[in-house]
Design a protein around this nucleic acid. Structure first.
Lengths: 234, 234
DNA sequence: TCAAAAGTGTTGACTTTACACCCATGA
DNA sequence: TCATGGGTGTAAAGTCAACACTTTTGA
């Protein structure tokens, strides 16, 4: 009762799979920024007739010679000129009808950029920052993707030092707290917040103070060097 | 300085994208089972010459007419005959060299099945349950995928009632605790464990007892109906 | 009567929350 | 001198971890 089984070679398998090579695959990036106490996301006017007037996330088809993370870095770099951003893969979306051009499966990433420190050329290409809380609908399934990434961001900021990618290198605890409150949608007690952050031991005291304020200046901090990672995998 | 911009139609975009339709996309399922106090994963002998002798996860290319979750359900059903399993998407893997046949991006799922309750026809197709802790290497990047899914499982069981998909409908608290310990790789205090589970309020007391044991029988419980979901999205 | 596991509460350590006053700065 | 936010500690509540004895069953 022994069974003989022919081993396929990779090459023969490739041929038998050719049928399946007509699904396209893309990355879409939820690019978060923080400016004037508001969490924002970078959107572009959709260039598809089907979604005329609607905004969409920034994305592109994946090229055959780049892996997933590389593809999303490329999208970010091409669209914003930035390459020191935080990137994290969140989820794959593959509903049959999610793209009117045909079958496109997309891998969603969120990324965090420090708006203030970078001057994007936004005016040139219909690219704009939109306050996250004002966004009601987007092209494709991008609202769902945005919400999924927003949830992920909310859980991540409690667990790992990612939020600092949204801030300038030097920041005060007040600025940090405001950002937490904006992302979580809650108010936090100042004393308890400071204790919680102190325990995590993420921050370096810079021995510098804020300036140009109409009130008592606070100390400035920076994220400790050992936590400055640009992305997390798996 | 107004700019005129031609809107593409979905159809025209499709044509310009044809170049990109030569990346294949698959799903791979980490199918966990629990038997004889061991967490196991269902593996198949790789049918690629390049990985002769190695085992791999169960996966398949995605068909053009099925979405991601459907594809992984299909893989499960085809390979195991089961369709009442828990499935959850975990991560997309897309390294350039992860598949010797060419560019294949895979979406990894983990799934949980109750081994005892289902008789798979395992002998027919080189499909076997392997104790998770004994697995050192797998074909492709499947060891990485397994580890990623294992981590996800560990965090999920603390937060949501997913673990019950590995158990028969009726189980004792001792069986449940053993399973937690096996997945987490730790020992748990019995009294504290029972308190923790009680607080979560996931269980229905069946007013039945174990039987055929050579020691004092324990009460039997079942997961409350409202928690019996077969998968979670996003 | 032995072996095995069921069932059950309390204490101390730790963590989290709520809360108020004085201080430094620029307008 | 006013408005704004900086900086700080404590007490009470809640959560978590450690720990032991009696009971039930079948062999």
């Amino acid at each position: 009762m022994e069974k003989l089984r022919r081993l396929k070679t990779a090459e023969s398998e490739k041929i038998s799979h050719l049928d399946y090579f007509n699904i396209a695959i893309s990355v879409d990036c939820v690019i978060f920024g923080y400016d004037k106490n508001e969490l924002k996301v970078l959107l572009i006017k959709s260039d598809l007739e089907e979604f005329a007037g609607a905004y969409s996330l920034l994305g592109d088809l994946i090229r055959t010679d780049e892996d997933l993370d590389t593809a999303s870095y490329r999208v970010l770099k091409e669209r914003t000129g930035l390459d020191d951003v935080y990137l994290e893969q969140v989820h794959a979306f593959g509903a049959l009808d999610r793209h009117p051009s045909g079958r496109v499966i997309t891998i969603a990433y969120y990324s965090l950029v420090d708006i203030s420190n970078h001057k994007l050329q936004l005016d040139t290409n219909e690219l704009h920052w939109h306050p996250v809380h004002t966004i009601r609908k987007l092209a494709f399934d991008h609202k769902l993707i945005l919400d999924t990434c927003m949830n992920r961001l909310q859980t991540q900021i409690m667990e790992r030092p990612v939020i600092f990618n949204l801030l300038p290198e030097k920041f005060s605890l007040r600025e940090l707290q405001k950002l937490y409150e904006e992302i979580l949608g809650t108010e936090l007690d100042r004393r308890n917040f400071r204790k919680k952050i102190a325990v995590k031991d993420w921050l370096q005291d810079l021995d510098e103070m804020e300036s140009n304020l109409s009130h008592r200046p606070g100390k400035l901090y920076a994220l400790k060097k050992e936590f400055r990672h640009k992305s997390v995998n798996a």
